[in-house]
């Protein structure tokens, strides 16, 4: 009897956790499929399948541009941070030299910077390069938060690779660049996928820099575009459109995360617990 009660309580808890995690996104999907005045009656299940909101998001604003901008910026950020991350992680993880610990601490320190603390300096830098309202400006500024954790996670991974592999390569006369590309890279795919995915998500979700360093509608990334969707007045937000846009940007990320969930969990914990 007591066991049965415990069993029921446990599964009730499990159900509550699932409901709590999934419901808001589910409700966004339900809302996005409603049309017109249907929005204003609360329903727990979709009654109609109306795709008007999805069409009007693209018609009423440059949402296709915003999506393309987000994809371009996030991909460029991933490519750059992986390149700089791998080269730096080789030095930090495989070679013993003086100042190595200090460097790692500095990199970790940078990842703790509040973004606002560099906002005016970053604004000046971006304007100095002539990159205000330009996607390249966003790519450069995003390095401040993707690079530190990429370096950190890849370093912990690189450090644990067997020494013998590298020694054998050195015996064969390979230089450090060849060691990275031919010996380590094939072994590092899991770590590269994890850190790349985390960097992609971080760049995809970023808001403060994207809000501050872009000006025109067509240069904005998706989060800023969604935040700035407005209706005829402050009190008439087009909730159907907002929810449709939210579902469009969230679905790919959710699918990616669910496919790679094991990798992501190990990446997060390598970055935080071991680090």
């Amino acid at each position: 009897m007591k066991r049965l009660f415990g069993w029921i309580a446990f599964y009730a808890l499990v159900a509550a956790i699932i409901l709590y995690s999934v419901f808001p996104f589910y409700y966004a999907i339900v809302t996005s499929l409603k049309a017109g005045s249907q929005l204003f009656s609360v329903e727990y299940f979709p009654t109609t399948w109306n795709w008007d909101n999805y069409v009007s998001v693209f018609r009423e604003q440059p949402f296709a541009y915003n999506l393309l901008n987000s994809v371009l910026v996030s991909s460029a950020v991933v490519a750059l941070s992986l390149f700089f991350g791998v080269t730096a992680a080789f030095a930090l993880g495989r070679v013993q030299f003086r100042g190595r610990g200090l460097l790692l601490m500095t990199v970790l320190g940078v990842s703790m910077f509040p973004q606002v603390a560099v906002l005016s300096g970053m604004f000046e830098l971006i304007r100095g390069f002539g990159l205000y309202n330009n996607l390249l400006g966003l790519v450069i500024s995003y390095m401040i938060f993707t690079l530190p954790f990429t370096v950190w996670v890849l370093t912990t991974f690189m450090r644990d690779l067997p020494k013998e592999l590298e020694e054998a390569a050195i015996m064969d006369g390979a230089n450090p660049w060849e060691i990275i590309v031919k010996v380590f890279m094939p072994l590092m795919w899991p770590a590269l996928v994890t850190t790349g995915l985390l960097a992609f998500i971080a760049a995809w979700n970023e808001f403060l820099f994207a809000l501050t360093f872009t000006l025109t509608n067509t240069q904005r990334t998706v989060p800023v575009a969604i935040a700035l969707i407005s209706g005829a007045s402050q009190y008439e937000l087009p909730w159907g459109n907002i929810m449709a846009a939210s579902v469009i940007v969230t679905l790919p990320v959710v699918v990616l995360v669910l496919i790679f969930q094991r990798r992501i969990v190990s990446g997060l914990t390598a970055g935080a617990v071991k680090g």
Partner: peptide, 15 residues
Amino acid sequence: VLIPWAIPTIVSAKM
């Protein structure tokens, strides 16, 4: 449980 983590902050604020 991972889903809220994957949703962009702006989107969760709007939702």
